[in-house]
């Protein structure tokens, strides 16, 4: 039963990681590409880490939750690196696409 739960988490993680990176290829400008990795990929990796925590907790018969540490770390650092990247992009005046409102 728990194995099915782990499988669901693993597949959800894989799908979100995939969609996050798909944004890198699909989106037309830098600022729109930034959305994929900061949100979808972070949740995808978080989901796989939760799957890992559940899996090793049932396998080794003892609660293993140190994967939470990487999840928390990623959730704290992802917005920081996104902020710095967009700041750098604004600094060197990376172009946004024409239809963006309030262009800077």
């Amino acid at each position: 039963m728990l194995e099915i739960l782990v499988s669901i988490f693993i597949v959800i993680g894989g799908i979100f990681t995939f969609i996050g990176s798909l944004a890198l290829v699909k989106m037309p400008d830098f600022y729109m590409r930034l959305h994929g990795p900061t949100k979808a990929t972070t949740l995808g990796v978080g989901s796989i880490l939760i799957a890992s925590a559940i899996y090793f907790s049932i396998k080794d018969s003892g609660i293993t939750i140190h994967e939470i540490l990487i999840t928390i770390f990623l959730f704290i650092t992802a917005p920081v690196s996104a902020h710095l990247l967009s700041k750098a992009a604004l600094h060197i005046k990376t172009k946004e696409i024409e239809r963006t409102k309030n262009r800077h």
Partner: peptide, 26 residues
């Protein structure tokens, strides 16, 4: 909101590019 946002963003990424309306806001 993080959970909801991820599903929303995933849908937006998979939708057609020309239907997206990006914006800067202050």
């Amino acid at each position: 909101d993080v959970l909801v946002a991820n599903v929303v963003v995933a849908k937006l990424i998979l939708s057609k590019n020309s239907s997206l309306m990006p914006a800067f806001m202050v």
